[in-house]
Simulated assay, not measured.
Amino acid sequence: MKSSISTGSGADAPADRRKRARLIVLLACGWAAFVALLFLWQAVSYRGLIVFLAEQQFNLFGRYYPLLSYLILTLLFGSPIFFFVRGRLWEPEAVASHATAAVNLLMGLRRFMRAMFIAAALCVLGAAVAALSMLTLPDMSGPVQTVDVAAQPLEVHEGATLLRGNIVYMRTAALTEDLWTARRETRFAPVVADASGRTIRYFVELRQDEMVVAGRPLETRRGILRRDGLPGELRQLFRYAGYIVPEPHYVLYASEGSLRWGRTVVASNLAIAALFFVLLGLWQLFVLHRTTRRLDGDAPASA
C-alpha cells in the first residue's frame, strides 16, 4: 500500500485567486486607459476611426458629434475586456462558489457601479491630457516672423507671425464647436499667392465680425501661426472640394484663446461626461445599499 502526503496549497487558493484578480484588474484598467488615450488622440488630430464616424454623422445628420463619437469608440473597445474577465475581476470567491440569486443581483449592481466610476476616471484622464496639451501650443511671445506666401519660404516656425498674401474669402469654411454650455463658430479662409492654384498651404482665421467679400487686395495679418492647425473636418472639406491641403500646412490664428478653443471643447466635454458617469455611479451605489438592506431584512433568522 502506498500513501502520499499532499503539500498542496489549498489554504493559499483564495490568496492566489485574489492576486490573479488584482493582476486582471490592473491589465483591464491599463487596456481601458490605452484605448481612452488612443481615441482621444484620434479625436484631437481627426484621424483613424474617428474620421469614419464623423463622415457617417455628416452624411446622416449634417454635423459631427465628437464627444459622442469618442465615448462610443472608447466603450466599444475598452469595456469588453471587463466583461470577458468578469468572473475573476470582481468577486472571485463568490463566482467560484454556487452563488445565489441574491448574490448574483448584488454582483451585477457592483459591476455596473464600478464600470461607471471607471468610465468617469477615463474621462477625467482624457480631460487632463487635453488640458495639459494646451501648454504645448504656440503663443504670441518671442520674435515676430514675417511670412510672404508668394515667396514660398522654406523655413517657417510656429508662433507670432505677420502673414502676407491674398485671402480667398469666397472659399471660407466655417466650423461650429459646442460646449454643452457655449457655442462658437470659427471661420478659416485660404491665403494664396495665386487664387487659381489648387494647393493651399496657408489659412487665416477670420474675425467674428469680419464680412466675407470678394476682390480685396493683398493683405497682411498678424496672429499665431500653427503648424497643421486646420481642424480635420475642414481639411476633409477642402479636399472634397478638389483642393490639396499638404502636410505641413499652416494656420494663422487671431488670438491665443481661439487657438486653444478646440482643446477647451474636448477637455470641458470630457469633464462634463465624467460628472455624468460619477452621478450614475453614485446612484448605483445608493441602489446597491438599498438592495443590500432589503435582502438583509428578508433573510430568515438563524435558529
Results as ranks from 00 to 15, higher is better:
V149M: 07
V144N: 03
V144C: 09
A102I: 02
L154M: 11
H157F: 09
L122W: 06
A94L: 15
G126V: 04
N104C: 09
L132N: 07
G108N: 10
F112L: 12
M116H: 01
A130T: 02
M107G: 15
T161G: 02
T161F: 06
T100P: 01
G108R: 08
M113I: 05
M113C: 10
S97W: 01
P153E: 03
P153D: 04
P143M: 05
S133N: 08
V149P: 00
R110K: 14
A127D: 01
S133P: 00
N104L: 13
S141F: 03
A101G: 10
M107S: 12
V124D: 01
A130W: 01
M113G: 00
V144K: 14
G142L: 06
L105C: 12
V103Q: 14
E93Q: 13
A128N: 08
G108I: 04
T161L: 01
V147C: 02
R114V: 13
P143V: 05
A96W: 04
L105K: 10
V144H: 03
F117E: 03
L105M: 15
Q145R: 08
E155N: 13
L125H: 06
E158D: 12
P153G: 09
S141M: 07
G108A: 11
L137I: 06
V124W: 07
L105Y: 09
G108P: 09
P153K: 08
G108C: 11
V149Y: 04
A128H: 06
R114T: 09
A151C: 07
V144D: 04
H98R: 14
R111S: 07
P153A: 05
P143F: 05
L105T: 12
F117L: 10
T136D: 15
T146A: 15
C123G: 03
A127K: 02
A130V: 04
V144P: 03
V144I: 15
L154E: 15
T100C: 07
T100S: 15
Q145S: 13
A128W: 12
E155H: 14
V147N: 01
P143L: 06
A160D: 06
C123E: 03
T146D: 14
L132W: 07
V124C: 12
A120F: 00
S97Y: 06
I118V: 15
T146M: 13
G108M: 11
S133V: 02
A96P: 00
T100W: 08
